[in-house]
Design a protein around this nucleic acid. Structure first.
Lengths: 239, 239
DNA sequence: TTGGGGGGATTGTGGAACAATGCATCAGAC
DNA sequence: GTCTGATGCATTGTTCCACAATCCCCCCAA
């Protein structure tokens, strides 16, 4: 016992990490409305740490895409635009397509994926819409994790984080409650069956639909914020 | 004139950006050997700035993958391992495959790509090996840029930066001088011709070969550092 | 409408100090 | 000889304070 290589590191977190984690959680959980400004002194006082630490934490979140930095003005919780959604979709396609293709071709173990799918299946019909979305994302995360590429995982985690910025605006679509499970089932089956081509095709269709929904939701919330009627882009999306 | 949206911002750089740029350049140009420790006080004195600024800059570079952070020990220029190379290859496949497929299918303008290819073509036979590699990378960057996705571009830039960490170890292979140009020509032709399938196939083969070369180079340089003979992994790569 | 001038809030940067940690070294015990 | 523990040193981690730089907003005058 204890003669092996150092694998089981206990994670001590520095203060800047702790602050970063706390603020990240706030943003990801939607507790901070898009557009909110995060003031260094305010956060420093609130968490009882020095301003420099907060600064480091926030700039870390900026690089993760969870905050926008306006020089000499401050740090703000981003409001996803339709361009952002399209951009994130591009990156997501790249990452997840590669992941799915590799899994299908090389047949890595899919335990984590099956576990994630089980959690999705077990969500009660009356559970909040948000749970469904998180379980959905959980599957995609498990898929990417299964590849075993730290950097692929990191990029994916970061982009999913950004995606979650727009998730609060995503209204429930009751008909999805059923289709979501079925869609993921066939996708996972295709991956497990080694059909790389079919799996990526299913994935890309799934992602495209998700991006469309999110783009629409983002457009709506933008209109709400600016107190205008629906924009042309929304009308296009609806037609 | 000047009535359009604010696109042409003049870039004033803050001190932390300036320091980050300076150090980044040092690392990317190979002026800092892998394993070198970067001391905050030393850099602060050298650039005549406060330690806090240096701290912020260095942590930025950590998130870019250009430095490794050991808690309470310091920041070090990474030594790429074979796992790193494989990992970077995975991510690179994801990003560039997506880029190539999109370009081939959607037919974005390829001006930048053609310019980058022209630079490669015009490299004199006696020019340093390094120029060839940089021109090679320049084409790949241009390809990704042509997609017009800021995040895809950002991820790609970051991963190429990491790749460059191992480039110093890459020995010249004289026979590549000719094949490199031809390889990229057929790839670009396939993209321009809209053959997504052929283009991605060519790309992946090209990238796989590059990863193999780099993995081998990295293994050799590791052996040099540890003063050992060639490892099994190298022998495998040579066979 | 344009231009200018405070005023206030916030970020950007610098300086100093001290705590916390990790590493190397050395002395001592079994 | 090898393990244990203590000591000192270098470097990072964190805090506090101060002040310059910048931006935004409001007011006012031409």
């Amino acid at each position: 016992m204890f003669n092996d290589a150092p694998v089981a590191q206990l994670h001590r977190v520095s203060t800047v990490e702790a602050v970063a984690n706390a603020v990240r959680a706030l943003i990801l959980d939607g507790d901070l409305a898009p557009g909110t400004q995060l003031r260094e002194v305010e956060l420093a006082r609130h968490y009882g740490v020095a301003r420099h630490g907060v600064r480091l934490s926030l700039h870390k979140l900026v690089q993760e895409g969870l905050l926008r930095h306006h020089a000499n003005r401050g740090l703000f919780v981003p409001q996803l635009t339709e361009e952002d959604v399209a951009d994130l979709h591009t990156l997501r396609c790249a990452v997840e397509s590669e992941a799915v293709a590799r899994l299908a071709r090389q047949g890595q173990p899919l335990d984590g994926v099956h576990r994630a799918f089980a959690t999705l299946e077990q969500i009660a019909p009356e559970a909040p819409w948000r749970d469904l979305i998180m379980a959905d994302l959980g599957i995609h995360r498990a898929v990417v994790d299964a590849v075993g590429s730290p950097r692929l995982t990191r990029v994916h985690a970061s982009l999913i984080g950004e995606l979650r910025l727009g998730l609060a605006a995503l209204a429930e679509k009751s008909e999805k409650r059923r289709t979501i499970v079925a869609e993921h089932r066939v996708l996972i089956d295709a991956v497990a069956g080694g059909c790389a081509k079919q799996a990526t095709a299913l994935l890309r269709a799934h992602l495209a639909q998700a991006a469309l929904d999110l783009a629409q939701a983002v457009a709506v919330s933008k209109d709400v914020l600016t107190h205008q009627g629906p924009t042309a882009s929304l009308l296009v999306a609806e037609s």
